[in-house]
């Protein structure tokens, strides 16, 4: 009897263990599919669900938040997805959150991601429609990748051509093989360095000049800083303006005189015409000059005669003595 009781106890333990393990396993699986516990519904609409199926996971900021309950085709461009979300997530999901369809890993199942908005929003309500955010689909990505590959192919072709041209360039290789070039470059760099130092010194000097000028030192400073110079300059410019006006008037008068003279010359009138063109006038002038020369000679002879006169001879002797003293 005791043996049978032992058998029964062992059997009971075995059956209980099996049933408990089965129930726990089913509960854990069911819990993952949001079959137990309180949940609420949300909705999201997509143009393309890209293989999403009922039972796929929903994640809120990367945390498991529920499962896809149902997928319904609304029209030819709209598919509505019913989301079964765990109730404990309700306080954290706002009505301005976005949803997109992603992948669990590179080749994993589809997953719906609920992305919280950066801006404040109201608490979500049962059955609310969340805004969907389109994500690049693998096909689109492959197309872009294909385009990128084409571009890379073109670029690599160009690169090969460029490298070949560089390899075939004699001038470039001569430059690269020229050992004196480096020395020349070094000297050039040294000169450049010196020039830079000189430029620095020059700029320092210019700075000094400019600061002196700003301080009112020197001519430039006086020009810049002294107000009276400006006044004088204005006055000088005004005077120059007046002088130029007067010069203009003089030139105008000269112009009229010249034109008058030209008119006289053309008509044979006036003094200028007589001086420049009248041969009789030339003869008269020559005769007058000759008479003057004769008069001057006579005058010199008269004066010589006077020097030898006893009345005034003493005066001339005194004059000669003064001159000789001055020479000594």
């Amino acid at each position: 009897m005791a043996n049978k009781t032992g058998e029964n106890v062992t059997l009971g333990f075995f059956v209980a263990a099996g049933v408990v393990v089965l129930i726990v396993s089913l509960y854990l699986i069911g819990k993952n599919q949001s079959m137990f516990g309180s949940t609420f519904h949300l909705r999201a609409r997509f143009e393309n669900v890209n293989g999403l199926m009922a039972g796929n996971n929903i994640r809120f900021s990367g945390i498991q938040a529920g499962t896809v309950n149902k997928i319904t085709v609304i029209d030819d461009t709209t598919i509505e997805v019913d989301l079964l979300i765990e109730k404990e997530m309700k306080p954290f999901i706002r009505d301005n959150a976005l949803v997109n369809i992603g992948n669990e890993g590179l080749m994993g199942n589809k997953v719906i991601n609920i992305i919280p908005s950066r801006y404040p929003g109201g608490i979500i309500t049962e059955g609310a429609l969340l805004l969907s955010k389109s994500t690049p689909y693998p096909d689109d990505m492959m197309q872009t990748l294909s385009l990128t590959n084409d571009n890379v192919e073109v670029l690599s072709g160009d690169l090969v051509s460029t490298v070949r041209r560089i390899n075939e360039s004699k001038v470039l290789w001569q430059i690269l093989n020229d050992t004196t070039l480096s020395e020349g470059l070094r000297v050039s760099m040294s000169n450049l360095r010196e020039a830079t130092v000189n430029i620095n010194n020059l700029s320092a000097s210019l700075n000094s000049v400019i600061s002196d000028a700003r301080a009112g030192k020197g001519t430039a400073g006086a020009l810049i800083a002294d107000d009276s110079v400006a006044t004088h300059l204005k006055q000088a410019i005004s005077n120059i303006n007046n002088a130029s006006k007067e010069s203009l008037e003089v030139l105008t008068k000269l112009d009229s005189i010249v034109s008058q003279t030209q008119t006289d010359l053309s008509h044979g009138n006036g003094i200028a015409n007589a001086l420049l063109k009248d041969p009789l006038m030339v003869d008269k002038v020559n005769a007058s000059i000759e008479n003057i020369q004769k008069g001057t000679t006579s005058f010199q002879e008269s004066m010589e005669a006077l020097k030898h006169n006893f009345l005034i001879r003493g005066y001339f002797k005194k004059q000669e003595k003064k001159k000789s003293k001055a020479k000594k």
């Binding site: 058998e7 062992t10 059997l11 075995f14």
Partner: peptide
């Protein structure tokens, strides 16, 4: 039946 469950189930475990 219970005895067979014990013999078949428990002893096979």
């Amino acid at each position: 039946f219970i005895r067979q469950c014990y013999l078949i189930g428990c002893l096979s475990f």
